[in-house]
Each structure stands twice: as C-alpha cells, then as structure tokens.
C-alpha cells in the first residue's frame, strides 16, 4: 500500500517537472522574438498584440481551459488536424496540457523580456552593428546578454507558473495518473479523498522546491547586479 502511494507521488512530481521544464523551453523560444518585436516595433497593431499576449493574466483559468478544451477536441478544426498529423488527440494528453501550459504562462515569459529589451534601448545593438556585427550577431552577443536578468526572470516565472498550474490542466487534461495528474492536481485529489498525509508530503515538497528555486535565482542575480 505504502509503496503504491509512493509510486504515484513520484509520478506526479516527475510529470510536473517534465511539464514545467518543457514548457519553459518552448516559452523561451517563442516568447523571445515576440518580446523583442514588442520592445522595438512602432507598428500600430502593437497594443492589440500586447493585449492578446496579456489575456491569460486576467482570464480565469477555467475560461482559458474551456476554450482550449474546445480547440483541442478532435471535432474542432485544429484538434482534428492534430489527430491527422500526429495520430494522437490533444485533449486529456500530456502534449495537450503542455500546450495549455505554454499558452497560460506566455505573458509571464514575454513581459519581463520585453521590459529588459526596452531597458536596453536600440543603441547597444546599433553600436555593435557599426562595429561590424550583423544584426543577428549583435542580438546574440549584445542584446541577449544585456537582457539576461529579464531572461532569468522570464524562465523562473514561466517555470513556476507551470508548476503551479491547476485549473487549465484540470479542464484540458483531466486527472489521469501518470499522464495529466500533475502535483497540484495530485494534492487536490488527496485532499478530496481526505488523504491529508500525502497532501502534506507533496505540499511540503513543492514548498521546499519553490524556496530552493527562488533562492538560487536571487543568488545568481546578486552575482550579476543591475547596472547603476
């Protein structure tokens, strides 16, 4: 009995870490160009794009989860296309909650990066280009390193937000052990079944993990102080 509980617990922990790491990686890849575009563009459409990007911040997770559930269902155009291409359904799958998590955490990654790029200004990249660096070279060797605090914040917030994800995942992924039952849903299930011991254990684990990650971030940040 005890061994069985342990297996499930580790399962949900492992699943959560996998989900958070993967969605953080995807977030960084997707959010960087958008954040850079938002920080540098003068296009009139910018406020609209910013609003859409920020939507997951204020929408109740259930609303977002509901729409994603509709979108992911095999009867929708997107959902059926996904089934045709990959042979798997998005709803109630790991890929589904990964996509949902990316969407829901998107503003947490975009906004710190956008702020960091805006603080850089366009001048450093221009200096790099006038010194012989191509625009991409300048971006990689000057713009990104100068915005590294923004990147770190984006990664940590994106990761933490994915770890804490509950409502959207419950709607999109359900509560399938080993597939979509992440740690927050696992805790919820334990509380529902009055298994407070397991809930305590997992909650404390999550708390310690959060504390560890944040401490690491602040230690790293102290080594790279903000310019004065």
């Amino acid at each position: 009995m005890i061994r069985a509980v342990e297996v499930i617990e580790l399962d949900s922990l492992w699943l959560t870490l996998r989900l958070a790491s993967l969605s953080t990686a995807i977030l960084m890849v997707l959010a960087t160009p958008l954040a850079y575009w938002l920080a540098t563009t003068k296009a009139g459409i910018k406020p609209i794009v910013e609003a859409v990007t920020a939507l997951p911040l204020i929408l109740p997770p259930t609303v977002l989860g509901f729409y994603l559930l509709i979108l992911f269902s095999p009867s929708s155009a997107f959902g059926s296309l996904w089934v045709q291409v990959t042979g798997q359904t998005l709803s109630f799958s790991f890929t589904g909650i990964l996509l949902a998590s990316v969407v829901h955490s998107f503003p947490f990654a975009v906004q710190p990066m956008q702020t960091a790029f805006e603080n850089n200004g366009r001048r450093p990249a221009e200096v790099a280009q006038s010194l012989g660096a191509s625009p991409f070279d300048a971006f990689i060797t000057v713009t990104v390193p100068m915005a590294r605090r923004g990147f770190l914040t984006a990664a940590v917030l994106g990761f933490a937000h994915s770890v804490g994800e509950f409502g959207v995942i419950l709607l999109v992924g359900g509560n399938i052990p080993g597939r979509t039952r992440v740690i927050s849903i696992d805790i919820y299930t334990h509380v529902e079944t009055l298994d407070y011991a397991s809930a305590h254990f997992l909650s404390m684990l999550t708390l310690c993990f959060a504390m560890l990650v944040l401490s690491l971030v602040f230690i790293v940040n102290r080594r790279y102080p903000i310019r004065t």
Partner: peptide
C-alpha cells in the same frame, strides 16, 4: 547594412 559600411559611430554616451 551598417556592418558592411563601417562608418564608425561614436555617440554622446560611451555605450
């Protein structure tokens, strides 16, 4: 592009 012109620019701030 600027990196092929090599017109060395020095700004008011050292940057």
């Amino acid at each position: 592009p600027a990196h092929h012109r090599m017109a060395g620019m020095v700004f008011q701030q050292a940057l």
